[in-house]
Design a protein around this nucleic acid. Structure first.
Lengths: 242, 242
DNA sequence: CCAAAAGTGTTAATGCTACACCCATGG
DNA sequence: CCATGGGTGTAGCATTAACACTTTTGG
């Protein structure tokens, strides 16, 4: 921070959140319909301005909560990267710090007309060009998707898409949705259960479903704590995309 | 960017650069000695304020050039992540966007007394606690190290530490320095040369060195273009840390 | 010829893919 | 007892780690 001659410019800083979940075996992203000035009526990532003295992660969680009506956001939140400032907001130089949320399929409150309307949209519709996003949010979404895909390979974060307890098949559905591939159920089962420090058997099973009941698993403690921005690979060997 | 009621705070934004290189088989980081107010006399990462209308990556390159005296920075520059704002700068809320430079061992101009003095320092000295860094720069360095380590596994970026042409042994020295391990020269050779779209033989060899001359390689074109923030793994299968 | 570093061959262990097969439940 | 999905076994193939060995230079 030296060289003080050029006046240190000050920038408005926003946080945006790419919230991903798996619904009906498809990857979905949380989008809001903008009600105000730039890109009014268009779809955009939820987000908003960082307040003075506020932590980035806190701001991301707060904005998400405000716009979905959910107090406690479930899942795994991490920083994705920063974009801008120049040329991404018609109002001027705005720096945005994008975040990535991997979450179970939580219900979004259909807010009243005075708030932004938030809803889940299949990612495929954005990729197909059926849905256009405001600002540079499509680029941010692309980066988020790539990050999510690669995270599943070497981290236990697929479980962040599931609830506290889940079956191997549900976990496999996450991989299949995010990677957009089919995986062999038998081999996936072995690899998931055979990976050390990944899953623990709760001893309980599903009931009432068709077919044989599936064992319920929980994330291992060692895997739970991999919450820091930089944490060493837990999945060893990694699960690789075909 | 909705909910305009809380006045959008404006933040000074800085870019910091973690420049890493390999010198004498050890990983080194570029640090400056601060000449001004906060943490005066302490070591810090090179960096400075982003100017209005300036791109983040451009700002990082500019600051690095200003503080090292080198016009064209060689190597691979990418964004690492953003830190703050609260509680990291005694002067107030400052947001910093950290960057990571993987570069060959380029000479740093010992600047005159009116500029910050930049020099390479062994990373091990920082890790051992022999060197203390200003602000939260030690944390940023830690994140950078983890990023660099994991990048070597699945990307061809180890070559960014070498010049345009290099031997397999030089490339191996990079892996050994960054990962702080020893690798079997024979197996490494096969893996590096056998990985598709990674290295191309220039047909030329080293001369004058002790022992058998080594073949000189260059990064393959396909690997060169993996400059985007999100680019699919090129090294397949990855080189894994022992 | 010797030392030193580059590069190749070989083998045993491991891991992965594909698929046959059995298990446990609901209807 | 049949359909449906959960879960296990296994054979063939690919990859790896460890190390013996050959090659090519300088002294």
């Amino acid at each position: 921070m030296p060289k003080s001659y050029p006046a240190p410019a000050r920038f408005p800083v926003t946080v945006d959140v790419v919230a991903l979940t798996v619904r009906d075996d498809a990857l979905n992203v949380l989008l809001i319909t903008r009600l105000i000035k730039p890109f009014r009526g268009a779809l955009a990532l939820p987000g908003g301005f960082v307040l003075a003295g506020e932590d980035l992660m806190t701001a991301a969680g707060r904005e998400l909560a405000e716009e979905t009506g959910v107090e406690q956001i479930p899942g795994h939140l991490e920083q994705l990267g920063s974009y801008g400032p120049p040329g991404r907001d018609p109002r001027g130089d705005v720096l945005t710090v994008a975040h990535l949320l991997l979450a179970p399929n939580f219900p979004v409150l259909s807010a009243g007309s005075d708030a932004e309307h938030a809803a889940w949209y299949p990612v495929s519709q954005v990729l197909d060009g059926d849905l256009k996003l405001a600002f540079d949010h499509e680029r941010i979404l692309m980066d988020a998707l790539e990050r999510a895909k690669s995270k599943l390979e070497y981290s236990p974060l697929a479980a962040a898409f599931c609830g506290d307890e889940f079956t191997i098949a549900q976990l496999r559905a996450v991989y299949e949705a995010v990677w957009d591939t089919r995986l062999d159920p038998r081999n996936f089962h072995r690899k998931a259960t055979g990976t050390p420090d990944f899953l623990v058997d709760t001893g309980r099973t599903t009931v009432g479903d068709t077919g044989r009941p599936a064992a319920l698993y929980r994330l291992a403690e060692a895997a739970r704590s991999s919450t820091g921005q930089s944490s060493r690979t837990v999945l060893n060997p990694p699960l690789m995309r075909p």
